[in-house]
Write a protein that binds this DNA or RNA. Structure first.
Lengths: 125, 125
DNA sequence: CCGTATCCATCCTGATACTG
DNA sequence: CAGTATCAGGATGGATACGG
């Protein structure tokens, strides 16, 4: 719903204190971080790993609806960003365990504020 | 870089304290919030509006690389989520002013933690 | 000044099948 | 068990042109 009136826009009177923000969004660390975490499965995977190390198989069954392909992609991407560690055990059949790194835990912690805001506005409250 | 050794996976010994997180990501408020803000221009627009109300034209020139189309889309979407207010002034030529709502300011505030984390890990530090 | 309308390239995601 | 390969659909974003 848009308001409409006939006063003078406040921008006419106000000075422009803003020089210009970061142009290339790749250069905006916040946008980069948000996009890093904003894909379909990343947050779900991280939140499961928050409970401790998990094997591929366990992750797959813990996250309803994820495919092997997407789980693999998500984990590989998290690994390459240093957010999770991947450990291969030479058992038979092989097992692979994933765990949060300190950086990964830091990221989850940094999301606390947004998480609180999100809960508050989740059409509940 | 993946580690490899031959110990027993810790998951064998550890119990599974995790029942199962939210399945449908639409049902996960945090993921929803992150995705809300994780598109190409939203954060840039919000951060400019943080400095006070701005006209369409000013926004366009403040955010290098944005097209009229994407600016309009981004603003409309923010408006429909109650994050910005849109006010039309019956001047000639017409001018339209956008401003953060309280909810919008709340969202930006909630991102402070993530912003700090992002700066810290922005290949600087 | 403040938009809309089209068209197009790309990314993201899912479904499915196959393997060391 | 823990992946990879392939294909296809929809969403996202950019370029450009036009209009009240």
């Amino acid at each position: 719903m848009s308001g409409t009136h006939s006063d003078v826009p406040s921008v006419v009177t106000a000075p422009l204190p803003d020089p210009v923000p970061r142009n290339e969004y790749e250069a905006c660390p916040v946008t980069a971080a948000v996009r890093r975490v904003g894909d379909r499965w990343t947050l779900l995977v991280l939140s499961v790993l928050k409970g401790g190390p998990r094997r591929f198989n366990v992750l797959e069954r813990s996250i309803e609806g994820i495919s092997q392909r997407m789980l693999t992609r998500t984990l590989r991407s998290l690994e390459s960003d240093g957010l999770v560690d991947r450990t291969v055990f030479a058992t038979n059949p092989p097992s692979v365990e994933y765990a949060l790194t300190a950086k990964g835990r830091g990221l989850l912690g940094a999301l606390a504020g947004l998480a609180a805001w999100a809960m508050e506005h989740a059409e509940g409250e």
